[in-house]
């Protein structure tokens, strides 16, 4: 089966200009078929980019990309509830649901399920598919064995399975903004300090080890997930789409390496080497895929 590359939503608070430039390069140069756009982490950030969004979408679509609108991960406030409800009414685009509140609105309509919805097993998958879900990006912590069972179930009922193959793993969500907290502020009074860390705010342990990364209410892995040397496994178990999560690095270069690996132009070892040659600021990890500590990097079995 053909494997397609996708680009997940930008998790961090980049300026509108940075986002516009980023997507222009993606449109022109990145071999990805699908691009997920929209603010997933913080409803306060949305207004900065909302104005630019139609133009960015048009640019991506002119370049032949399919654009999917991603919904907020956390929905508590009135404005967050309204944003979620409004997104479902988007007439021209598919949407990806990232909070249970979105499931309420999306029932009976075609929609996608994002990685921040807990789809851990085939029963949940079938239930949601019966309500209109057509495509599932699975939680980052699911091991290969579970993904294989889900992919088989998805094939039986004709829905898509997508797995994150690159970028920081989302590890936790909170109602509290840890970016604001680091600066002695509260979420309502944050002054958007998260913009200072376009690749997330690093947390080191008392021993000085790179450990976690803060992005507002989200906690991410310090390491970048990479399954670039597991593409054959993904294909064999029936995964159809591979998601790259945006980081503040050469994402076009990352996409090119994955595309070459998927197309067979380079082998797993060379792909891994080329990825590392992009001078990544974080170590690579694939532990979740192997059912061990997510931060570990398990060597490929020759």
């Amino acid at each position: 089966m053909a494997l397609a590359l996708t680009l997940g939503p930008i998790p961090y608070h980049w300026s509108a200009e940075e986002k516009r430039d980023f997507y222009a390069r993606i449109a022109d140069e990145a071999p990805v078929e699908v691009v997920y756009v929209g603010e997933v982490i913080c409803s306060k950030r949305s207004p900065f980019f909302d104005r630019e969004l139609p133009e960015v979408i048009e640019r991506l679509e002119r370049a032949g990309k399919k654009v999917v609108l991603a919904s907020l991960a956390e929905v508590i406030l009135k404005r967050e509830r309204a944003m979620t409800a409004a997104l479902i009414e988007s007439p021209d685009h598919e949407i990806e649901i990232n909070n249970n509140a979105g499931l309420f609105h999306a029932r009976g309509r075609q929609h996608r399920i994002g990685p921040l919805i807990n789809v851990y097993n085939e029963h949940t998958l079938r239930f949601l598919a019966a309500r209109g879900a057509t495509h599932f990006t699975l939680p980052a912590e699911l091991p290969r064995e579970a993904v294989a069972v889900l992919a088989a179930a998805a094939r039986d009922i004709g829905v898509g399975i997508e797995v994150q193959v690159f970028g920081r793993a989302s590890l936790a969500l909170s109602a509290r903004c840890y970016h604001a907290r680091a600066y002695g502020r509260s979420k309502d009074n944050c002054q958007f300090v998260c913009e200072e860390h376009p690749d997330g705010m690093p947390l080191k342990t008392l021993a000085g080890a790179d450990f976690l990364v803060i992005n507002g209410i989200q906690t991410l892995s310090a390491g970048y997930v990479s399954l670039v040397d597991r593409i054959d496994e993904l294909r064999a178990i029936g995964v159809g789409h591979c998601r790259l999560m945006p980081q503040r690095i050469d994402m076009v270069g990352v996409a090119a390496v994955f595309a070459q690996r998927i197309g067979g132009a380079i082998g797993p070892d060379e792909a891994a080497a080329r990825l590392l040659a992009l001078d990544l600021p974080a170590p690579l990890a694939n532990g979740f895929w192997h059912g061990v500590a997510g931060e570990r990097r398990v060597a490929a079995v020759p």
Binding site: Y120, E141, A172, G287
Partner: peptide
Amino acid sequence: GLMIEGRCSLTNYVTGLSTNM
């Protein structure tokens, strides 16, 4: 707990055992 329950994989990231699973 500080993280939203059911949406936290921190333990799994470090130990290989998942709070959710």
